[in-house]
Design a protein around this nucleic acid. Structure first.
Lengths: 204, 204
DNA sequence: GTCTATAGCTGGATAGAC
DNA sequence: GTCTATCCAGCTATAGAC
């Protein structure tokens, strides 16, 4: 790694940290600079603008999540195991980056057009992989292995149960009256809870 | 209603509209003023600051949601019906105010301390009503009417399934490749889907 | 009460010395 | 490449005329 690459990397790490915690609007170039151990001017020397820096961080995280999900959806494993894989893939990511969902959702809400550019760029429309999953669900229903259910609702249900406790963390903490460590413990146990909840609900 | 009250009300309505759509940081006093048909100076004449205006709007919506939920949780109806009531209460609110969850979550994420002030002010800790619900769930489990489940996970599951499709709307729309009207239709059907999903998953 | 004008601050971006 | 100094836009908030 050359020195420039190393500095690039240092800045991107700092940017990741600050943007994930504060979002685009809330983040200050000053904070990123300090975290990276330099001043604002140098930041702008390496990356023209705040927006550019943000896009790099955002695109990396979003693409990682999305292509991970699509890989699993289009893979050739039986339905129940596939559901398990999705849950574990997401929860692993979220345990490592608890702020990730809020970060992504907030940006998509402010800036929904970006999504289509990103998807087109990566040449990977969700439709195709979703159709594979849809067919698999229909097949399972036909064979009587699960109850009648629309695959779109199923996938949204899975994502809801996995992601909401992270986006809604401050609310859930208050409601359940748990402090940070207790809430994290709650989330740990929850991994198993989500699986059985979903598997139970699609039983024939 | 006096003239002052009418103007107050006019401003609060405008503020509600703008804050819900843009959040605190994204909202501009100029936008609120225009929506209310006046200029910024007059806004400041009626409400000292942007923060004050925001708090009024936020507190009203949050308290409404929260006390509605607590009323249902502590009411005396059987468990399955109670679940149904929660789902319908939330979905009615969300259909009328699709931006509400993102608005609330975003503020709580940036400003979690406010929550405790709000709760204390209203003299209404969630703990007590949660305990009623907890006991009800335990009772249902004991009587073999539902399977063994932790009431805390159950309530978080319900909220997840109801709220996520609204917070994650831009993501879900892209993933399911639906335009705005189709997605709204999807959400309409979903109301029934959520009920059966939950009720199925807690069967003994 | 309602307006115009403007003060004052915050924060992204750039110039220019080293 | 890295820094200090500075510019400038955007926005909240207030002063002051009417």
């Amino acid at each position: 790694m050359t020195e420039v690459e190393a500095t690039d990397h240092l800045i991107l790490e700092a940017a990741r940290e600050v943007f994930l915690k504060k979002g685009f609007a809330g983040a200050r170039m000053e904070d990123i600079a300090k975290t990276a151990g330099m001043n604002r001017a140098l930041l702008h020397y390496y990356f023209r603008s705040k927006r550019e820096l943000f896009q790099i961080v955002f695109d990396k995280h979003f693409t990682e999540l999305q292509s991970g999900l699509q890989d699993i959806l289009s893979s050739e494993v039986i339905l129940t195991e596939k559901i398990q894989l999705i849950i574990n893939f997401y929860l692993d990511k979220l345990e490592a980056n608890p702020d990730l969902p809020a970060f992504i959702i907030q940006e998509l809400t402010v800036n929904p057009e970006r999504l289509f550019l990103l998807i087109k760029e990566k040449q990977r429309l969700p439709g195709r992989t979703r159709l594979v999953f849809e067919e698999q669900v229909r097949e399972a229903v036909r064979k009587g292995r699960i109850r009648e259910i629309d695959s779109r609702h199923l996938i949204i249900n899975i994502l809801s149960l996995v992601v909401f406790p992270y986006i809604g963390r401050p609310y859930a903490k208050m409601f359940l009256e748990l402090d940070e460590p207790s809430y994290n413990a709650f989330l740990k146990i929850r991994r198993r809870e989500i699986s059985s909840f979903i598997l139970k609900s699609i039983q024939p």
